[in-house]
Computed example of a mutant assay.
Amino acid sequence: MEKWDFDGWAESYDEDVTKEDWIHRDYWKVLKLVAGQAEGAVVDIGCGTGSILRFLRSENYVGVEPSEGMRKKFQEKHGFEPLDGHFLSVPIPPESADTVITTYAFHHVPDEEKEDAIKEMLRILKPGGRIVIADVMFESEEEKMRIGEEDGLKEEIEDEYFATVDMLRKICTKLGLECRFERVNRYVWIVKIRKVLTSDRKD
């Protein structure tokens, strides 16, 4: 949290993310695609100022955000405040959400904690529910380094914890999850994860 100063960023966040820099390229398109995958009771982890509510009904939505500044900005925009929590501690009872979403936030979770973050999302997910993660990520560590070099972004990429498709596939396999990956542009992917139910298994 201190590394990125989200409280200080809250005032300019909405303007900054729509400047179409490399991280936020196709920003509104990505949010709309994620919202299109969200059904039923939706929990949004790392919700920031709640931009995705442009595409979602607020009565079915719960935001979770660790930054006090972001929560205050969210409340100013939408008239209610998200919960104080983060990827490793979501203040919501088990099996409460039909869909857990997160956009442009998962790269703040250190690689060694990503599996625990997914487990926490699973904890609050109802049977048959889904997790939808949209963020900058890369197919492999090799692609991450190559794109960093080619695009002059090596320092910026190394300063964050961007996931790879390889990493997330391994985590999902270990946890018995089905995962599907959709590449939106050179940097941003959407990952759809769900539990494999007993009724889905083939003998």
Rank of each mutant, 00 (worst) to 15 (best):
M1D: 11
W4T: 03
W4Q: 14
D5K: 11
F6A: 00
F6M: 05
D7M: 00
G8E: 00
E11Y: 12
S12W: 08
D14C: 04
D16S: 13
K19W: 07
D21I: 03
R25A: 12
D26I: 06
K29L: 12
V30Y: 03
L33H: 12
V34K: 06
V34L: 02
G36Y: 03
A38H: 01
V43W: 00
V43H: 04
G46C: 10
C47T: 05
C47L: 07
C47V: 09
C47M: 03
G48I: 02
G50E: 07
S51G: 12
R54K: 09
F55H: 10
F55A: 06
L56G: 04
L56Q: 02
E59H: 10
N60I: 00
Y61Q: 02
V62C: 12
E65W: 05
E65D: 12
E68V: 08
M70V: 01
M70K: 09
Q75Y: 10
K77D: 08
H78G: 10
F80L: 03
E81Y: 08
P82H: 04
P82V: 02
D84P: 12
L88R: 03
I92Y: 00
P94T: 07
P94H: 11
E95W: 05
A97I: 04
V100E: 09
V100H: 05
V100M: 12
V100R: 08
T102V: 06
T102Y: 11
Y104P: 09
A105G: 07
F106L: 09
H107Q: 01
H108P: 11
H108S: 04
V109C: 14
P110R: 06
P110V: 00
P110E: 05
D111Y: 14
K114I: 00
D116P: 03
D116E: 14
I118C: 09
I118E: 10
E120A: 09
M121C: 15
L122K: 01
R123H: 00
L125V: 04
L125A: 05
K126A: 01
K126Y: 03
G128K: 04
R130M: 11
I131T: 02
I133Q: 09
A134I: 02
D135R: 07
D135F: 03
M137A: 08
M137V: 01
F138S: 00
F138A: 00
E139N: 08
E141K: 10
E141I: 05
E143D: 08
E143Y: 04
R146F: 11
R146E: 13
I147G: 10
D151S: 15
L153S: 01
K154D: 10
E155G: 04
E156M: 11
E156W: 14
E160D: 07
E160K: 08
Y161G: 06
T164W: 10
M167D: 13
M167R: 14
R169G: 04
I171V: 06
I171S: 05
C172P: 01
T173C: 15
T173F: 14
K174I: 00
K174F: 03
L175N: 01
G176M: 02
L177Q: 06
E178F: 15
R180A: 13
F181L: 06
F181C: 07
E182C: 04
R183W: 02
R186D: 13
Y187F: 15
V188N: 08
K192H: 11
I193T: 07
V196I: 13
V196P: 07
L197M: 14
L197E: 15
T198G: 13
T198V: 12
S199R: 07
D200M: 10
K202P: 14
D203I: 09
D203G: 15
